[in-house]
């Protein structure tokens, strides 16, 4: 299925979605965080799309906002889509979990929580995965400072 057709299907679900294909090889869809869960649920359930394979879940710090990027593929149709969600509240970023839709998200969301401090609603076991529980700050954020261990070139 071509990107246009995918876009056509998804666009009918909500009018708050932004689509872009610039600067990326995949079709990007930017989803407001309130609608993330329902959109993701439909992406997997829709029989024409069947995005059943979440192959990458990335947290990102855009400076003004934090974000989560979901790379999705369908193992039956082999088409891809990238779902992006922006969270502008840096102090207390919260977004819905998708770990019950794609089980792999459970670990990846823990990783994102660990490094970006993005909290996931309804996550079964949200804790620091790599860093010790008493670690302060979120290292992959751009404003993280550690003068001892970080060498800036």
């Amino acid at each position: 299925m071509t990107n246009q057709e995918i876009q056509h299907i998804i666009a009918s679900w909500s009018d708050k979605l932004e689509f872009t294909e610039e600067e990326s090889e995949f079709l990007n869809v930017i989803v407001p965080k309130e609608e993330l869960y329902t959109i993701c649920e439909q992406l997997k359930a829709n029989t024409d799309l069947k995005f059943d394979y979440l192959f990458c879940l990335t947290g990102i710090d855009w400076g003004s906002a934090l974000g989560v990027i979901y790379h999705l593929e369908s193992t039956t149709f082999r088409h891809n889509i990238v779902v992006k969600v922006k969270i502008s509240d840096r102090e207390n970023p919260i977004v819905d979990t998708v770990s019950d839709i794609w089980l792999t998200a459970e670990f990846h969301e823990m990783e994102v929580f660990d490094f970006f401090g993005i909290k996931f609603n309804n996550h079964p076991n949200l804790k620091r995965l790599f860093l010790p529980a008493e670690w302060e700050g979120y290292p992959l954020r751009k404003d993280y400072v550690d003068e001892v261990n970080m060498v800036i070139k």
Partner: peptide, 17 residues
Amino acid sequence: GEFYQRVETARGELGVY
């Protein structure tokens, strides 16, 4: 822009975003 490359390592799919 954004670039994504997938390769098959001995353990499975490695993606570089």
